[in-house]
Nucleic acid binder design. Sequence first.
DNA 1: ATTTAATTGAGGTACGCACCTCAGAAATCA
DNA 2: TGATTTCTGAGGTGCGTACCTCAATTAAAT
Lengths: 342, 342
Amino acid sequence: MPKPTVHDIAQEAGVSLATVDRVLNERPGVRDRTIQRVRAAIDKLGYVRDTYAANLARQKAYTFVFVLPEGPSSFIDVVREAIEEASTSQMAERVTIRVLSVPQNDPHGVVRRLLTLNPGKIDGVAIMAPETPQVRDAVRRLKNAGLAVATLFSDLPVPVRDHYVGINSYSAGRTAALLMGRFLRGVHGSVMVVTGSLQARDSIERRHGFDEVMQRDFPDLTVLPTLEFHDDISRVDRLVGTVASQTRDLAGVYSMGAGNQALLAALRKTDRLNEMTVIAHELTAVTREGLLAGEVDAVIAQNVGHLVRSAVRVLRAKCDSVDIFAAQEKIRIDIVTRENLP
Amino acid sequence: MPKPTVHDIAQEAGVSLATVDRVLNERPGVRDRTIQRVRAAIDKLGYVRDTYAANLARQKAYTFVFVLPEGPSSFIDVVREAIEEASTSQMAERVTIRVLSVPQNDPHGVVRRLLTLNPGKIDGVAIMAPETPQVRDAVRRLKNAGLAVATLFSDLPVPVRDHYVGINSYSAGRTAALLMGRFLRGVHGSVMVVTGSLQARDSIERRHGFDEVMQRDFPDLTVLPTLEFHDDISRVDRLVGTVASQTRDLAGVYSMGAGNQALLAALRKTDRLNEMTVIAHELTAVTREGLLAGEVDAVIAQNVGHLVRSAVRVLRAKCDSVDIFAAQEKIRIDIVTRENLP
DNA sequence: ATTTAATTGAGGTACGCACCTCAGAAATCA
DNA sequence: TGATTTCTGAGGTGCGTACCTCAATTAAAT
């Protein structure tokens, strides 16, 4: 009944401790037949390695780097904070976390910054960066150097990363559409879609999902062409203002990315914000206030704290070449309203 | 910068390892002055005890018991499954989990079953049971016996438990109301509320939150008196059928608890299910299918996997008298629709 | 049959901590 | 002052695992 240990395995398999150890840690020098014997004993006794004792013995300390875009953004602030928190609470588990800021909208700058990482001194990276060929190559290099690589919030092609930590953008867009359509029951009108850029893979996917559900389920609503402000917040006011004034039946606004502060400011000027249904992404100081003020009706979010912790767990699992516990690492698409605000 | 150990503390305080150990484990035989010196060294170096190494040395293994209502329920099934999962994945961390089933709607039976627990052989309990004086006393007894006590899904008074793991029922009800009202924009009609019983504290709170938001924000909708089927599913059909046929303007149905299978069956008979907005609680096989079929419009849920893992962490923290990481243990109110189904 | 290579066993040290013993030092009391 | 009593230090052992070395055994190749 007590938890079996390596000793029990050794006895059961009729081999020495050293051999059990070799099998467990996949060290060479064990005949196949012997490996099978040990494996059988492990199964029979239901042995599970005590990970903490193992780490204690291994004296292994993990160093992970989170790569984040620099520049002011309420969302990045939330992410930074979550990393900070995870960092202190994970200290007890021998992982240290560093943050590396990379320039926005400057793929070459990102690459330069990534090259400053010394793959010998770190064990894994979690990267939040839009996909470009340059970034792809740089990340591939990190992975080839033996690092565990996780993508955060926005994915990169499968071969260059080990795991994606974030929500499915396509489903997120579909969810936004469902809420938009439901909240605008019986309304004939137009829906404005605003984004910083339609370059990033996740933006395209969101838009895709959004359009699909809108067209299929809510034919009374017309989705206007996407307003791209190209990450230049100063353009938001003019762009939104123009469209809003030209669209008399504007009933809904779907904000696909950042820039919600400027967007809400622009919408306020129309004096019709209160009648509009506004749906945005990510729970930040801005969207939270928007919800409380009744200006924003719903926010499609991901639990950033959970996400960061998940990234750390995933990177650790990769380093230890251990399986992850999929159910725990699945990031859900949160719908946040005024009433279920965390 | 490496993590300080007991050795570092001993050196810093100018005492021996044995003394540091006596202070850390509050063993007698150390002068007050010396205790202060050691404490100061601990603070100065920022020492945090490695609980895993400590538990290893102490040969400590945790045994936790989850107390669940017996009897068939798709929700309990989900909980059981989550416990199963957590159990296997936590085995590596020296915690074993047992499940104790207690009768439903029989407070004395619950108490009898709780008395079979030997407080000396277990370290903590996570309890899912409706509040009654008998249950309260039995749980208090467990807590007084030195066990860590967490309440699951439904709370008990603060003094008899250490921690509540679950969502705020009041906010959950409010959230349901918000969705109901929003999904029924422009509709004048009635909303049916169905529950197993209004006895349980969480049912009352949900109803309360639901009513509050409905009255304040959606005056066009009339909330009908709660239909209680007193945990006897066979009554659902007749109750719901009667009300549905009498209520010509029935537009929405809010299911506050279990019994969704019977409820949906009853609603199907009215042939008006497709036009109704149905909101239910908890993501189970039944509600999931309801969402996919378009019969259920939204489900207010809690992430049961997360919740169970959280309960285990909380109980462990209590046993080690260590602080919990509040942000991680906060259970969010999930809104699940067809498009963001996990 | 001999050499060579591949396996395996025995044993050690270490990780950070708990808990034990026993002797010696220091403080307290008489 | 001596006789207690109270502290403290030094040292050990063990928890479950990793990882190392060296010798011994076994299998494969010549």
